[in-house]
Design a protein around this nucleic acid. Structure first.
Length: 199
DNA sequence: CCCTGATTCGC
DNA sequence: GCGAATCAGG
């Protein structure tokens, strides 16, 4: 496979959207993420400029890569303000809210085979987008049983534990979190809507 | 271990 | 120019 115009464009597009190299490679097919990264660099669009903030959805592993540039990098673009096209019309990647000083991110999420299941879409009002994502993801869920869960499978429970069709998502977890990306989205909602319940 | 991007260097 | 191997980090 070679880099057609189309392929390069798709690469640019996806990279611009913040997609990870591996995702792009998967989409393109016939290339590895290394190839994608290499191409990205050759094209000179390595830094994903961002003015608005944290728009990284499925990847932002490394960022503090100031590193020690051994040689003088020949990256000259002094007069290239770049309008920083950040359209991102995709409503898909916008589930996280920055202002969350709440230290609520310490759920042990062990799921003690019983009742204390912290999350669970009930009478809650969560981000519609996040919920949509979840229900979409649940189609692809692995439907694991409790025993099949591992450290890197999403432990999001689906269904009623007192019912034969109760299973866990089982998709690959985000990173150290107990859930896959979609479920992390609804599990760790940093409070936004419905903040004051009746009291 | 999973993942991420960055760099190097033979091709 | 290309990308596997390697590196460096989360």
């Amino acid at each position: 496979m070679s880099w057609n115009d189309e392929r390069v464009e798709l690469l640019k597009k996806m990279w611009g959207e913040g997609q990870s190299a591996s995702q792009i490679a998967k989409e393109l097919g016939g290339v590895t993420r290394n190839a994608v990264i290499g191409k990205v660099h050759r094209l000179g669009l390595s830094n994903r400029n961002g003015s608005g903030g944290t728009a990284t959805t499925a990847g932002a592993a490394s960022d503090t890569k100031a590193k020690a540039a051994p040689e003088a990098k020949t990256k000259a673009k002094p007069t290239a303000p770049k309008p920083a096209p950040k359209p991102a019309p995709k409503p898909e990647a916008a589930v996280e809210a920055p202002p969350a000083p709440a230290p609520v991110s310490r759920i042990k999420a062990i799921i003690p085979a019983g009742q204390p299941l912290p999350p669970q879409p009930s009478a809650n009002e969560i981000d519609p987008a996040a919920l949509a994502k979840v229900s979409e993801v649940e189609k692809k869920a692995k439907r694991l049983t409790l025993m099949e869960l591992t450290e890197r499978t999403c432990k999001w429970p689906v269904g009623d534990p007192a019912t034969p069709d109760f299973w866990f998502c089982g998709l690959p977890v985000q990173s150290g979190k107990p859930y896959c990306e979609a479920h992390v989205g609804v599990a760790f909602q940093p409070m936004s809507s419905r903040r004051d319940r009746k009291r």
